[in-house]
Design a binder for these strands. Structure first.
Lengths: 121, 121, 121, 121
DNA sequence: GTGGTCTAGACCACA
DNA sequence: GTGGTCTAGACCACG
């Protein structure tokens, strides 16, 4: 697994786990890979995975059964979507609008965006 | 002035200066606030402002007349817009489209964006 | 059965067994549930129950008749009460007093405690 | 500094910081020792202190000014008392009452407690 | 100087 | 086997 510099590795791993939960690869109630397994799989230290799991646990996305492993919470998918929507509307969308305004972009330049928006009428 | 955690303070200050150049608040050829003025204004260490100015100088957005101050270069506005457009189309726009797709957002939810886009027909 | 994170599961199970012995639910000389029964009842691995029973055996609270089961010893209730009183007066009571002092709690806030103390005059 | 085994070192350090905030040794708004200083002072690893500070930050007890240090929040003292009261009433008090009931303790045995309660009428 | 992240490796209690 | 904590040491960006 390759990582970007801009965000922490542990964050990127957390995001990728969330993606897998939303996509159904990690179903609700299922056990996610153990700390050691996961660390070996993505080639990072166990502590880094541990931190990832801890953060996800604090956000009620996974929960811990002692000595057994971490499991996807019942509420995980909704939780993830909520978090992402909140971030989108409070950070990404305003910033995007600000950029569009500032750069005075034409409709033509934003065509890819409109195309995307029109695909699901 | 308040700062986010995600980006460096000096970056955020640089961005705000660029905003003011693009918007015309700092016209081409004008003198921008001195390091100590600016530091006092935003409540930050002078070193941090100095670093900001150095970076902007490296990007040919401002230039230094020793003992007098920093001035907005002739090419600054175009320079900034080019940099931002490049970043916008290569990073922000694709990411924005990805998010919209992922969160399966309705037109209703994106109303603020359309409102903005329609203001300049 | 639900478990807290602060103490080990086997400890919590041991405590609950001791509670039942003191309260008379498990009388002296009676057979306590088998390992596999108990494991199924509280939803826990048999190893965990086994460890619990071993610890209790070590403290002479239960004894094992091979092939038959574990039985509450003659001395169990006294044994448990002694252990708990010791712990209570050396740990819990001083800590409790410290907390009351530190939080500067009013009599009103401690009403539930007084109510309890007055039930047996 | 010596640590007990029952709780994590980072927790005990957090508790001791809270004590110092409540007692006024670390006044509201003041800077607490840097990670490195604190680590050297109590003889633990920097990571351990870092974890402590992070937890306290999440509980709004300290806040971070980038590149400068951690500072005691305005709301810290109230925050701490709230957290401790909550823990007291939801954990310690019920457990204490349960013990008193179970051990069938006499008023005489609880004299130290009454003495404490009567000191501030 | 400050925080912040990551690694490598160890040790523990628990299931 | 699982999580959980801690250490020692390194490196980075930022002020």
């Amino acid at each position: 697994m390759e990582f970007k510099d801009s965000k922490g590795i542990f964050q990127q791993i957390a995001d990728s786990i969330c993606d897998k939960i939303v996509s159904g690869e990690y179903p609700v109630g299922s056990k996610i890979p153990s700390v050691r397994e996961h660390a070996a799989a993505v080639g990072v230290n166990q502590n880094t995975i541990m931190r990832t799991y801890m953060e996800l646990q604090r956000e009620n996305i996974i929960s811990n059964q002692r000595g057994i492993g971490f499991f996807v919470t019942e509420s995980a998918p909704q939780q993830i979507i909520n978090l992402r929507k909140e971030e989108f509307f409070q950070v990404h969308l305003p910033e995007f609008i600000r950029q569009v305004k500032l750069l005075n972009l034409s409709r033509e330049e934003l065509k890819p965006l409109f195309d995307q928006l029109n695909e699901k009428p």
